[in-house]
């Protein structure tokens, strides 16, 4: 490799190589992994939340049904950004409060002193002695949970609709064969609802991808955070690589990343749709059947 010790003396190309491999850039590259990891974890968790929400909204128990419907209605009515602005702190305080109740039952000082939120040292999440990576992991988990709560509401909405789209005749047939409500749900509705849910879920995935630039609001140092930080004009006093406002280039890189991710997702979803349509009582399924015959 080149010696990057004295960047001012380097030729253009070498300078660029050194610049693009600086410690800060490595953090930038890693943050792409963070975003992909967040997507990979959030998607199934949101789906689980959505499934619970949709099941609750269908429930015969009235309070549970209200909860399910209220959850989807309220969260969907509010811009995600408004949630992100205060949800992480609220969640964090909520968890610490619970831990505090369990771990320090004898604590007699008030938890709220003025504007301070104080729990005993053992209840802190993570403990203040924990290494930085644990703090970061915890912050990341809170971000995942916040995303999952918001997108779970949308997923619940999609799944609720999909559950109702399973042809009614099939449910009646199941009943005629003596299936219980629970059996009908697990053996008839759940296996078949996916094809009806897929268009909605694939759109949800696309929104989820495009919501990740808001991650920095949740305290996660994501690609947008680093793109801004790296792209901002640097003075020679504060950096070995002084440059003007380069945000345009960094954001162009982000644009390419998002477009690529969208394109790949589109292709994958097209494949899944083809596979799921197989043997379904839908127009696409019918078409496949005829083509095969």
């Amino acid at each position: 490799m080149f010696a990057c010790a004295d960047p001012q003396s380097l030729e253009k190309f070498d300078w660029l190589v050194c610049y693009l491999t600086s410690g800060k850039h490595v953090l930038f590259y890693q943050s792409f992994g963070v975003v992909l990891l967040l997507l990979a974890i959030t998607a199934p968790v949101s789906l689980a939340f959505g499934f619970l929400g949709a099941s609750a909204a269908r429930s015969q128990i009235t309070p549970l049904r209200w909860f399910g419907k209220g959850y989807t209605a309220i969260v969907r009515g509010v811009p995600d950004i408004a949630f992100f602005m205060f949800f992480v702190i609220a969640l964090d305080q909520f968890f610490e409060y619970l831990r505090h109740k369990v771990k320090c039952p004898d604590w007699d000082l008030p938890i709220r002193q003025g504007s301070d939120f104080i729990v005993c040292a053992q209840a802190k999440l993570p403990l203040s002695t924990a290494p930085q990576w644990q703090h970061e992991t915890y912050g990341f988990s809170l971000a995942v949970l916040t995303f999952a709560i918001v997108f779970g509401a949308f997923a619940a909405n999609v799944l609720f609709g999909a559950m109702r789209s399973v042809p009614h005749a099939q449910l009646e047939t199941a009943e005629a064969y003596g299936f219980s409500r629970r059996q009908t749900f697990w053996r008839i509705v759940v296996p078949q609802m996916w094809i009806y849910a897929l268009p909605g879920l694939s759109n949800l995935w696309m929104i989820l991808i495009k919501a990740t630039p808001l991650l920095f609001l949740l305290g996660v140092e994501d690609i947008v955070y680093w793109a801004r930080e790296l792209g901002a004009a640097k003075q020679a006093r504060f950096s070995d690589y002084p440059h003007g406002d380069w945000r345009l280039y960094y954001f162009a890189a982000l644009l390419a990343f998002y477009l690529l991710l969208t394109r790949i997702s589109e292709i994958v979803f097209a494949r899944i749709t083809r596979r799921l349509s197989h043997g379904q009582a839908t127009a696409a399924g019918e078409k496949q059947r005829k083509a095969a015959a």
């Binding site: 696309m206 495009k210 919501a211 990740t212 630039p213 808001l214 947008v224 945000r247 345009l248 954001f251 982000l254 644009l255 998002y258 477009l259 969208t262 394109r263």
Partner: peptide, 18 residues
């Protein structure tokens, strides 16, 4: 459609302002 649906609005605002 691909360009505007495939990128975050956030980034669209940035480029447009530029």
């Amino acid at each position: 459609i691909f360009l505007f649906r495939g990128s975050p609005l956030f980034i669209q605002f940035f480029f447009a302002y530029f």
